[in-house]
Amino acid sequence: MMDKIQINHLRELEAESIFVIREVAAQFEKPVMLFSGGKDSIVMFHLAMKAFYPARIPFPMLHVDTGHNFQETLDYRDKLMAETGTKLIVASVQESIDKGRVVEEKGVNASRNKLQTTTLLDAIEEHKFDAAMGGGRRDEEKARAKERFFSHRDEFGQWDPKNQRPELWNLFNGRKHMGEHFRVFPISNWTEMDVWQYIYMEKIELPSLYFTHRRKVFQRDGVWLALAPFMQLKPDEKVVEMEVRCRTIGDITCTGLTLSNANSLEDIIHEVATTRTTERGGRADDKRSESAMEDRKKEGYF
């Protein structure tokens, strides 16, 4: 039993996020939480556990599976869901391709990142989800800086950044018309550093990918990528073995790896504190253009 807890910045962020998650469970009929196996969704999952304990999380998790995963992520995901008795729904990009809903990108930079949008929107429609919680943070990218906690989407799943509902105090307006849904971002106000400190403070277990390990990698446009069976190499790209770790985990085709020897949370926090590039700096999907993120988000991306 603890005597009295101090409300430091992490506890305040935690309290805010739990409030948002409970608000979603209370305001919506069929909410879902997106789970990618990345550190942000792991923290969000942990907050959901805290919000409803000792009851189980009253909504399922949805993994939009590109088929291009790190095996470590899938193992971690399945173990976590089994241990906590949480329902998991997997929406497969491969299925969307097979059904002809989307066409795979071609060429060496082919990524299934953009295709996830269709798979996600299809899953939302199929399961009639009216709110999808995501682990997006406002500090990640400039278009996200203006995102609301409760972000309204029209019947096409689109975001209209210039016509967002004002959001005041902690009064969230989740009212909507038939066919519309909300994206909700419970950890909007967290920074990368907050996420790492919180993982450290709460002793949250992470997939091994976040810690240094030896892996076959190659360099493309200055970014280290993992070698995987479905990655096409350009003639001048050489595969080498390096000590790397992930700073963020997404689709294997566009997740940049950091050369690092960090093998504990303390090491990682130190590394984040001294590093000079954003974590999305390693994400090829954001480098496509100045407003790449805003354009994808308007279409219905996370």
Binding site: H9, A143, K146, P161, K162, Q164, N189, E294
Partner: peptide
């Protein structure tokens, strides 16, 4: 100035949230 329209017009039209920390405060 986060959004495309704002960058083009050089104006801030919405609320944007920014984060920084010093050793004392976030």
């Amino acid at each position: 100035d986060g959004l495309k329209a704002e960058r083009e017009q050089g104006i801030t039209i919405d609320v944007a949230y920014r984060y920084f920390a010093t050793p004392k405060r976030k």
